[in-house]
């Protein structure tokens, strides 16, 4: 009853094939089938946000998505955020503002914030807190993450 499915995901710009059972979570497919372990798994019930990736540019929970459901779609993980010139503005801002400690939740935040700033290039404090409100961090108390989102917005504005 558990037939395997051939799927193709376009991950960080490259087509990747995998053979997965229907129940394979996208988070596990990325981490264990494709070796992209930057996407982390913190709760597997959709609350912590560690596993957030971009699906066709929109942030989604990879632990609440079956790999087979997104066959053929484009996925960006934390490994795909940096450009050829190095860290992305969001990544640079996180380093500059000390917005990470243990780093476990960080990939999820980076994906969420990358999408947030595409939609709102100059968010207010409140919009930032609302925008990242689906991601748990146990280390930072969020203050420096909020600061980093503002800083990333500045860096993005400077670049464009």
């Amino acid at each position: 009853m558990t037939a395997e499915h051939e799927i193709t995901l376009v991950v960080n710009g490259a087509a990747r094939r995998a053979r997965v059972p229907g129940r394979r979570l996208l988070s596990d497919c990325l981490r264990h089938d494709l070796g992209l372990t930057g996407t982390h798994v913190g709760c597997e019930h959709g609350v912590c946000g560690c596993c957030t990736v971009l699906l066709d540019g929109e942030p989604v929970r990879s632990c609440l998505t079956l790999a087979v459901t997104v066959d053929g779609r484009e996925i960006t993980t934390v490994e795909g955020l940096a450009g050829p010139g190095g860290l992305s503005p969001v990544q640079r801002a996180f380093a500059e503002c000390h917005a990470l400690q243990c780093g476990f939740c960080t990939p999820g935040f980076l994906c969420t914030v990358t999408a947030l700033l595409r939609e709102r290039p100059a968010p207010t404090d409140e919009e930032i807190r609302e925008g990242i409100s689906g991601n748990l961090c146990r280390c930072t108390g969020y203050q420096n993450i909020v600061k980093a989102v503002h800083r990333a917005a500045e860096l993005l504005a400077e670049e464009s």
Partner: peptide, 22 residues
């Protein structure tokens, strides 16, 4: 001083327990 851990943790290159031993 900026953290020296950050470049790897920001790019998905951290090595946490479940990232080992594929």
């Amino acid at each position: 001083v900026p953290r020296r851990e950050d470049p790897r943790l920001l790019t998905g290159q951290g090595r946490y327990l479940d990232d080992l031993g594929p």
